[in-house]
Design a protein around this nucleic acid. Structure first.
Lengths: 344, 344
DNA sequence: CGACCCTCCGTAAACGTTTACGACGCTAAT
DNA sequence: ATTAGCGTCGTAAACGTTTACGGAGGGTCG
C-alpha cells in the first residue's frame, strides 16, 4: 500500500473524496465513506504522516521533553510512566500521539528544545525539569508553540503550568512533626536549580516561623536528590554536636542512603531520627521502618497536564473550556512508621 | 523564518543551491556555502522536517519503543536513561534524533507498533520488552523496517538483537554460592513471558546440574519483578519446612521487599539467606547489607544497540561493517555483603 | 580555434496529503 | 421552464524540501 492514490484507484474514485471520507468531512456520501473506510482497513492503508504534516502544518504529535539527570531524581523512580499514561489517555481522545524527547546529558537543554521545535516534529510540548529561570519557556512563547510546563518558573510570564504542592507538603510535614514533639527539624533540598527546591525550602521556613522555631542553617542540607545524597546527609548529621530529631527529605530515594548510614551507626530511622519524604515509592513502602511520605496521583496529574495543554491549542481549546491554566497539584500523606512521636 | 525560499531570496540565490549547501553536497562553491551557512545560522533557519521527510522518504529519526509496565521492572529503575544516553551519542553522529515511543498500558503493543510504523514517523526502531513469541519482530521484517531488539526472541528469524547475558549470570551466581558452601539455592523469576526469564531459568538449572544439585520446584518462585514480588518470595520462603540458604533474584528491586520481609521475621539478609540479584542499582548499593549484584554497562550497551541498528540501515551500513548482528551482552559481578559464606 | 571538461548554479519535478473551488445531477421553488 | 439550492464528487494547487538535469562560463588540450 503506497498511498492514497492507490487506494483511490482501487476504489475507482478520486483521491480528494478518499481523503474527505477518511477525515470525516461532511460532504461525502455515507455509502461512499463506508466503502472507503472498509477498503482502507482491508488494504492496511494509513496516511503518511509527512505528507499530512506538510500540507496542514500540523503533526498530530505532542512531545514530552525531559532532561537526562535532572528532574529531581524523578527519572530514577516511576514518576513519569504514571504521568505519561494519563497524558496519553487524554491525547488519544483526539488522535494525538505522544513522543518523549530526551535531552541527553551532554546537550544543552535550551538548544535541544530549539532544535526540536524547529524541526516541527511536534505541535505542542509538555516541558519538564523546569528551572527557576528557564529560557525554554520564553522561547516557546515567542515561537508560538503551545506548551504546558510541569513546574512553575519565573520565566514564560503567564504561561500555563501544573506544579506539585511542595510548599504544602513542607508545611504539612513540619506541622506533623511538631505535633509529635519535634522541635529541631532538618531539611534536605537539592543543589540544582529546579524550582521545586526553592518552593520546598520556602514552605519549610514558613512553617518554622509559624511555630516559632529558629531557622538553623546547620541543619539545612544541600544534597543530591539520590541515595548517595541521603547517605551524605546522614553522615553530616552524625558529625553534628546538636543533632536534629527529625528530617524532611525532598526525594524519597534519599531515604535509602539515609537509612543505611544510620544503620551503620547503629541508629534506628524513626526512633532516633524521624523521616518524612516526598514522594511515595515502592522502595519506601518496603523500607524498615516503612517510610512516611507523600503520594502523587500520577495518572490524574498526567490527565491534568493533557487537558491544560489542549486548552492552549487553538484547535482544541473549545473542548476544554474550564481546564485550569495553572494549578498547584495536591499531594496526599501516606503514613508510615518512620516519623514516630519523639522519644525523650 | 518561513522556509528555504526566504533564505534563498535573502541571499539572492536559488533554493536548489541553498539546499545543496546546507546538505553538504559537493557541487557548491565553498564561498557560497559559507554564506549560506552563515545566513542560516543568523536567521535561525532549520529545515522543516515534514518537507524533507516527504521528499526523501526518510525522517532522520529513530524510535525506541517501550511498553508500560513490562520491561522486567526496568521502567522503574534507571536502566533506560543510561542506555538511551549511549544510543543518542551514536545517532547524533549522523544527525539522527531519537524519540521514545511509549505504548500505554491500555494498548496492545503489537497494534501500537503497527500504528507507529504506518505513520512513518521513524526510519528505524529499537524494540524493547521483547517477548519469547513477539509478532512485532515478524511484522517489522515483513514491512522492511530496520530494527534491533533488546532481548532475543523466537520470532523475527535472523533478526538482529542484543541480549543481556542472563544465562551467564545465573551460572556465575550458582558457581559463587556453591563455592561459599551453599547447596540449597532458590531462584525467583518473572511470571510474564519476557524472554529473559526463561533464559535465566535455563542457566539456573544448567548450573545446578553441573554441580550435581537437585532441582527442587519448591524453591523456584514465580514472582513479580518488583519490591512486592520480593516480599512475597521471602514470605513463601519463611513458610517452608526446608528453607534454602541462598536465593537468586532476577531483579534487584525484589531485594528491597525481600530484605523487609526477612527483617520483619528477625532474619538477616546475608547470614540467614544469601542474596544475589541482577542488576546493580543505587538502591542495592545502599541496602544493609550491601547487595551483591551484576552491573550492566548501560551507556556502552546503548552504543552497541545504536551501532548494530545502523549497520542494518542500508544508508549507514557501510559505516559499521563489523558491528555484530547479534550479541550477548556481558555483565560484571559487583561484590556486596549479601552473600557471605554459609554459616553452619 | 574548436572540442571538451569541470565547476557551479538555476529550473522544475517529485514526495503524499489536504482543501478551496467549481462542476454535476437532482429536487424544489418560483 | 428557469433558477436556486443541495448533496456529492473531481480537479488542481499548495505545503517545504531534495535532486536529476541541463546550462553558462571558464580553463585546458589537441
Amino acid at each position: 500500500m503506497k498511498g492514497i492514490r492507490q487506494l483511490a484507484d482501487h476504489l475507482q474514485i478520486s483521491i480528494g473524496t478518499v481523503s474527505r471520507a477518511l477525515n470525516g468531512k461532511a460532504d461525502v456520501n455515507p455509502e461512499t465513506r463506508r466503502r472507503v473506510l472498509e477498503a482502507a482497513e482491508a488494504l492496511g492503508y494509513v496516511p503518511n504522516q509527512s505528507g499530512r504534516a506538510l500540507r496542514q502544518g500540523t503533526t498530530n504529535t505532542v512531545g514530552l521533553i525531559m532532561t537526562q539527570g535532572v528532574n529531581l531524581g524523578a527519572n530514577n523512580d516511576n514518576f513519569f510512566p504514571g504521568v505519561i499514561d494519563g497524558l496519553q489517555a487524554v491525547l488519544a481522545r483526539h488522535g494525538l500521539d505522544l513522543v518523549v524527547l530526551l535531552c541527553s546529558s551532554g546537550e544543552d537543554p535550551d538548544a535541544y528544545l530549539r532544535r526540536m521545535v524547529a524541526r516541527r516534529i511536534v505541535d505542542a510540548l509538555v516541558v519538564t525539569a523546569t528551572r527557576t529561570i528557564d529560557p525554554r519557556l520564553d522561547f516557546l512563547q515567542k515561537a508560538g508553540v503551545p506548551f504546558v510546563s510541569l513546574g512553575r518558573s519565573q520565566s514564560g510570564a503567564g504561561s500555563p503550568w501544573i506544579d506539585l504542592d511542595f510548599r504544602g507538603i513542607a508545611l504539612h510535614s513540619v506541622e506533623r512533626l511538631v505535633a509529635n514533639g519535634h522541635r529541631r527539624i532538618a531539611v534536605a533540598a537539592p543543589t540544582n536549580d529546579v524550582h521545586l527546591g526553592s518552593i520546598f525550602m520556602q514552605g519549610y521556613t514558613e512553617a518554622l516561623e509559624a511555630h516559632g522555631l529558629p531557622y538553623d542553617p546547620e541543619i539545612v542540607f544541600l544534597a543530591e536528590t539520590s541515595e548517595e545524597g541521603g547517605y551524605d546527609v546522614a553522615d553530616r548529621i552524625l558529625h553534628l554536636e546538636n543533632r536534629p530529631t527529625a528530617i524532611l527529605l525532598i526525594a524519597e530515594l534519599m531515604s535509602v542512603g539515609l537509612y543505611r548510614r544510620l544503620g551503620e551507626a547503629g541508629l534506628r530511622p524513626g526512633p532516633d531520627l524521624a523521616v518524612i519524604a516526598e514522594r511515595e515509592s515502592p522502595v519506601g513502602r518496603f523500607l524498615l521502618p516503612r517510610l512516611t511520605c507523600f503520594r502523587v496521583r500520577l495518572k490524574e496529574l498526567g490527565v491534568q497536564l493533557g487537558e491544560t495543554l489542549l486548552s492552549t491549542i487553538p484547535a482544541f481549546s473549545p473542548l476544554y473550556p474550564d481546564a485550569p491554566r495553572r494549578k498547584i497539584w495536591p499531594l496526599e500523606l501516606v503514613e508510615g512508621e518512620s516519623d514516630p512521636p519523639i522519644s525523650v
